[in-house]
């Protein structure tokens, strides 16, 4: 080709990496010709969609299609599994779910377990988010200070995040059960045994506590990254401006950390609403329905009750999905308002 210098010939023997690369190069050559033909036919712009297609197929198959099927299930009734065999009931499942004397009193609802799940999830999420944000913030601020063993403590706080939720729940169950580690300690100190997972108040407290313990490291990490992104010279300027420490925190650190705080609050909210595995393994939703969450309700309604009510479970999932969409919208709105 004119204007192109030929590659210098090498006498060195090709390395093992070069040999391993041969199939890859061959495969690329084989793909090359049809792709070029396709690009000529479609043009460069439309070619982008060809590259997006594989992931779109997976998304459609495993995310979008189940959502559609779920919505179809929620407007159909009966025990049949295949949508074509299920009779259309319109908004019947939703009407059943929302049939309540008073929404503030689950016992007046026809599907009282759903509303107990809503109430429990709300209590769980509200207390968990507030405590999680405050504790993560405090931990991040402390771990951002020049303290001895900072790296060690950062690892210690992050470690629970690496554990599976089931493992977390089992560890704490072992600690909290009737003859668990904590009660052994209390009795050893002369106290009386407390039924942590049997008394409703304690069960909810420990559900929240264990969830915070398991996930706080992740949120602390987000806030720590935010704190470290604040330039140190801003704090030096504040020092030169004779700013009291509390004012530095309130007027500089918090506003500059706000984007990270939004992420933490909304992620914690979404995770709280979705909570299932940890609480299910720790308390089984009990005692009674004291720690029954919405997702557990959906799971049990669809799969573990004697009568498997797919339609009702699907309707509850759609309601949960709408709530999660609203929360995500809230996050986007807050982030955009801050960015503007």
């Amino acid at each position: 080709m004119p204007g192109v210098e030929p590659l210098p010939k090498t006498t060195a023997r090709p390395s093992i990496v070069a040999w391993l690369g041969i199939p890859f190069v061959l495969a690329m050559r084989i793909v090359d010709y049809p792709m070029r033909a396709l690009q000529r036919a479609l043009g460069e712009q439309r070619m982008a969609y060809v590259f997006l297609l594989p992931n779109l197929i997976f998304f459609s198959l495993f995310v979008f299609a189940p959502i559609v099927i779920n919505v179809i299930f929620s407007v159909t009734g009966g025990p049949a599994l295949f949508p074509s065999e299920r009779p259309f009931v319109g908004a019947g499942q939703y009407a059943y779910l929302f049939d309540c004397g008073s929404y503030l009193d689950p016992s007046t609802c026809r599907e009282d377990h759903f509303w107990r799940g809503v109430a429990n999830t709300f209590r769980f999420t509200a207390s968990q988010v507030v405590a999680m944000v405050l504790l993560s913030l405090l931990t991040a601020v402390v771990l951002n200070m020049k303290i001895r063993g900072r790296g060690f403590f950062r690892a210690v706080y992050f470690f629970p995040v690496l554990l599976s939720p089931v493992v977390v729940a089992l560890i704490w169950k072992w600690i909290l059960q009737r003859d668990g580690l904590l009660n052994a300690g209390i009795i050893g100190l002369g106290g009386e045994r407390i039924l942590f997972l049997v008394e409703p108040g304690w069960a909810m407290f420990w559900a929240v506590f264990v969830s915070i313990w398991a996930h706080m490291g992740f949120y602390t990490l987000i806030l720590l990254a935010g704190l470290q992104a604040i330039p140190s010279d801003i704090y030096e300027a504040a020092e030169m401006d004779a700013t009291p420490r509390w004012r530095v925190f309130l007027r500089l650190t918090l506003p500059l950390l706000w984007p990270n705080l939004i992420v933490v609050i909304v992620l914690a909210l979404i995770r709280g609403v979705q909570t299932f595995d940890e609480v299910f393994v720790l308390t089984g939703g009990g005692p009674g329905t004291a720690t029954l969450m919405i997702v557990q309700y959906i799971y049990e309604t669809a799969f573990s009750n004697q009568v498997q009510n797919f339609g009702l479970a699907a309707a509850a999932s759609v309601v949960l999905g709408v709530v999660l969409c609203l929360l995500t919208g809230l996050q986007l709105a807050l982030s955009r308002r801050k960015a503007a």
Binding site: P231, D233, I234, A237, A238, E239, A242, T243, L252
Partner: peptide
Amino acid sequence: SDRGLAMVFQSYALYPHMSVFKNMAFALEN
């Protein structure tokens, strides 16, 4: 903070979330 000196930094070190007015007023509020 107690030396009564003022410093202009190479990076400016302005408070990014505050207006120009608030940047200048911050020390005076303190």
